[in-house]
Write a protein that binds this DNA or RNA. Structure first.
Length: 279
DNA sequence: CTCCAGGTACTAA
DNA sequence: TTAGTACCTGGA
């Protein structure tokens, strides 16, 4: 199957796909394969050209454009957030890092699995989940499995769900999937402002502050906030000298006030900076 | 064997 | 509102 091509500028694909926003990707030189709920996306970069194809529905340009957030005014944002030495270094170190815009349903379901687990373990569970409940798509003689939709997961037997090694999260996953089968919920979620959307997300069992912010930024494309995990909080205490006892909400208020409408982007750069510096 | 993970729910003050 | 604790499980 032939690949489509689109011009890109300052887009660091590997960094973006493996920066913790998504657990859907694998690299098989020279291709990246992303198994999402909307199908499998295959990508390859050659200088300023991005080659792509989607499966099983071919040539799904809108999916790729949206997922990779290709239309976002990147340079403009960079100049606005370059306010101090820390962020400038972070941008320099991770030039071309982008925020993806992933399917909201997949964001909710996959990030519920992320709590109190390490990245390797999260990836492993999601891979098992796709294998067990997703649709098989064969590309380049290799089998991929899409991320299961909410109907499939809401129907899943709890003991079967547990076999993907998600422990106590299996209840949360099934409950969330059931709620997500109501498509009006998602439609409405997309119309809400940041705080209303967060309030709705936190109603899910298994979603608290941090995961809600992940979904707001990586799924809904709301950039007035950012998830503050352990690394994000370290950014604020170590680089910006906030008191270590500051609560999540207050840390968030601080960084939101500082980076305004581009908080999500700044947070992503700083997170990456901190993670690679101290881990 | 023990410890802990890119958090969250639950309970008691 | 705030602090303390348990949680499935695999990997270090």
């Amino acid at each position: 199957m032939s690949l489509n091509v689109v011009k890109i500028n300052k887009y660091n694909l590997p960094l973006t796909l493996f920066s913790g926003q998504t657990f859907a990707w694998e690299y098989n030189e020279p291709y990246f394969y992303g198994s999402t709920v909307d199908g499998v996306i295959k990508l390859k970069v050659d200088k300023d050209k991005l080659y792509w194809q989607t499966y099983p529905q071919k040539d799904n340009k809108s999916l790729v454009e949206k997922y990779l957030n290709l239309k976002f005014p990147y340079e403009e944002m960079l100049s606005k957030i370059s306010k101090d030495i820390h962020i400038k270094q972070a941008i320099l170190q991770s030039h071309g890092l982008r925020l993806l815009q992933q399917n909201t349903e997949e964001m909710i379901l996959s990030f519920i699995l992320s709590s109190h687990k390490n990245i390797k373990s999260i990836k492993n569970s999601i891979e098992l989940l796709r294998f067990k409940y997703g649709n098989k798509v064969t590309i380049d003689n290799k089998d991929f499995y899409t991320f299961p939709n909410s109907y499939v997961l809401s129907d899943a037997n709890l003991n079967d769900l547990r076999s993907v090694k998600i422990g106590f999260r299996s209840n949360y996953l099934k409950e969330a999937a059931t709620k997500l089968t109501d498509k009006q919920f998602l439609t409405r979620l997309h119309t809400l402002d940041e705080n209303s959307a967060r309030a709705e997300l936190i109603k899910f069992k298994g979603i608290g502050n941090k995961i809600a912010d992940c979904i707001l930024v990586f799924g809904l494309g709301i950039y007035t906030t950012t998830p503050l995990d352990v690394w994000g909080q370290r950014v604020l205490t170590d680089l910006y000298k906030l008191d270590k006892k500051t609560k999540y909400e207050d840390m968030l208020l601080w960084i939101k006030d500082y980076y305004k409408e581009h908080t999500g982007w700044a947070g992503q750069f700083l997170f990456e900076y901190m993670r690679t510096r101290y881990s």
